[in-house]
């Protein structure tokens, strides 16, 4: 079951080399290393010789799927963790990408990313959509995801205090927004002044409102990949609110975002017998 990063890297390089050599794709999006810092960074390669710059290890936290939106008209291969494949499935469901332009190199049996708390909750360790796979698929039965959440145990007042403390540190750099696969709007509500949704200053009440509004847009679309949390330079628990909504979607509607390119999003669909907890009679 244990996947070896060296082997994964070699397999990825092999696929990338062949695809570029045969001219099947114009570019491969994967992970590489920065020359000076040695940190993992997204890498875009166009020549077969460059494929030995590709790597894969436990630091590959960025969600590469978002870059696909920059290359809608060209043929692209992408190194995709299972969460990336879910993002891609969502994009396909929303008609944002053309499947025939895409070559997905899925990572089988994803071991999780260092420092990403979302990976502890992950139940999808194999790609949901792929053309090639690297590594050994993981047996779902072996998984024991931790879904319990300390926040659920708290009272409303305690949670309010918790989120106030978290969001008070927000500097409104919008890294969470830019890292998130859901956030591809031409104009974000934060930038809109007609209508005016939320103040751009770093007051706590506006920070709080921004995170609520951001999270509401994630409802039924968040795949709980943790990209927002990994991107946040201040280490704010920005994932807690959207992650809560993914749990609600699972419990109430048995809905899991990004599992199937044919699937409708939660909020663009309904059932006449939908539950309505908390509604007044």
């Amino acid at each position: 079951m244990e996947n070896n990063y060296k082997k994964l890297t070699e397999e990825i390089r092999g696929f990338a080399f062949e695809l570029l050599k045969d001219g099947k794709v114009d570019r491969v999006i994967g992970y590489g290393k920065e020359e000076y810092s040695g940190e993992v960074t997204p890498l875009f390669i166009t020549a077969p010789d460059e494929s030995n710059r590709l790597i894969f290890n436990s630091e590959c936290s960025m969600l590469l799927a978002k870059y696909l939106l920059n290359y809608r008209e060209s043929r692209v291969a992408i190194v995709a963790k299972p969460c990336d494949t879910r993002a891609i499935a969502s994009y396909l469901a929303e008609n944002l990408l053309k499947r025939e332009n895409l070559v997905i190199i899925g990572i089988n049996g994803c071991p999780g990313i260092t420092g990403n708390t979302a990976c502890i909750e992950c139940t999808v360790r194999n790609p949901v959509i792929f053309d090639f796979t690297a590594g050994e698929a993981i047996d779902k039965a072996e998984l024991s995801p931790r879904v319990a959440n300390e926040l659920e145990e708290m009272t409303a007042a305690e949670r309010l205090a918790y989120f106030q403390e978290e969001f008070s540190r927000c500097i409104r750099c919008y890294a969470c927004r830019e890292a998130c696969y859901v956030c591809y709007c031409e104009e974000c509500f934060t930038d809109s002044n007609q209508p005016f949704w939320v103040g751009g200053s770093v007051k706590l009440k506006d920070n709080f409102t921004f995170h609520l509004m951001r999270s509401m847009h994630m409802a039924g679309r968040c795949i709980n990949c943790g990209a927002c949390e990994m991107a946040c330079p201040e280490g704010i628990d920005v994932r807690a609110l959207p992650a809560k909504l993914t749990r609600v979607a699972r419990e109430l509607y048995n809905y899991e975002a990004g599992m199937d390119p044919e699937q409708k999003t939660l909020l663009t669909d309904y059932d006449v017998n939908d539950p309505q907890p908390g509604f007044l009679d």
């Binding site: 609520l212 609600v248 309904y270 939908d274 907890p277």
Partner: peptide
């Protein structure tokens, strides 16, 4: 019908955030 799902999600979100 669409609104119903939205409001259920919104209410869950707001109450989770401490409202």
């Amino acid at each position: 019908m669409y609104a119903r799902r939205r409001f259920v999600m919104l209410k869950e979100l707001l109450t989770f955030a401490g409202v």
